[in-house]
Amino acid sequence: MSYPIIAAQLYTVRDFTKIPKDIEKTFKKLKEIGYNAVQVSGIGPIEHERLKHMADEAGLKICATHISFDKLEDDFDDVVKQHKLWDCEYVGLGSMPGEYRTNEEGFKNFAHKASEIARRLNDQGLKFVYHNHNFEFTRFGNTTGMDILFNESDPDAFQFEMDTFWVQAGGANPVDWIKKLKGRMEVIHFKDMAVGLDMKPIMSEVGEGNLNWKDIIDACKDIGVKWAPVEQDICKRDPFESLSISLKNLKKMGLSSEVK
């Protein structure tokens, strides 16, 4: 098995996963496109057992999730039950709650609190992964929010799920950060960045933008990243077509969506 394995981040097709019957259709469509694994995020309400059955029927592995911080704090046992039922090792947090983003102390408090939850997940055989945006690269004197998360969190429990687009949007180098996260990142979000004539950054299909994918992929291989869900929050075309384009481009770059 070659790593990282390409997966589809369901947030990309969130408009097509609001009710159970649409989730089922979406799973089948992603399988037809060529994906064999998904990250569950942004879907409508559905029973854990029913979702697992749909994924199995479509032949899709659930490689990771995004869970709200409130649920991690208030319904921890159900989170554990859910992930074990889904045979899903990675419990993802899409972003820190807004109240922690206001200052340096807030970032430190979040890093400490999330580390406590991460250690509890580790005790259950699961792994906590934190997904960044660009606000983590806000500067506080000589440091950034992302540096604070890296330095103040428990390196044995708090893992990252770096997003290539948002690191670039935050003014940092995705390759540098991948290398820095060695030993603390097994899931990464692949998302490309283009630019419009209005000089604003645009989320684009992987390989259709300006990020340095050769160096990004090489760095992921070097540090042992296992999963690379493709995410595109905003698509200029049908999101399924966008996911298809990203997958085709990544296969041309030598990656695979095969799960063994």
Rank of each mutant, 00 (worst) to 15 (best):
W213R: 05
E186F: 07
V230H: 02
H189D: 15
M185S: 03
I188E: 09
I245G: 09
S246P: 01
V187N: 02
I217P: 13
P239A: 01
Q232S: 08
S257H: 03
A194C: 03
K191M: 09
S257D: 11
P201V: 06
K236L: 05
P201G: 08
I223T: 05
N210D: 15
S244L: 09
G196E: 06
Q232V: 00
G254I: 03
V230T: 06
K252W: 12
V187M: 03
G209Q: 13
D218P: 05
I245W: 00
F240L: 04
K221M: 08
C235I: 01
K251A: 01
P229S: 03
I202V: 11
L247G: 05
G224A: 06
N249G: 08
V206P: 10
M199A: 12
V206M: 05
M199H: 15
M203E: 07
G207E: 11
N212V: 14
E186S: 13
H189S: 06
E241F: 11
L211D: 15
K214Q: 12
E186I: 01
K226N: 14
H189I: 01
I216S: 01
I202G: 05
L197F: 15
L243Q: 04
P229K: 02
M253H: 11
K214R: 14
P201F: 15
Q232F: 01
L247N: 06
K221R: 14
W213T: 01
V230I: 14
V230Y: 01
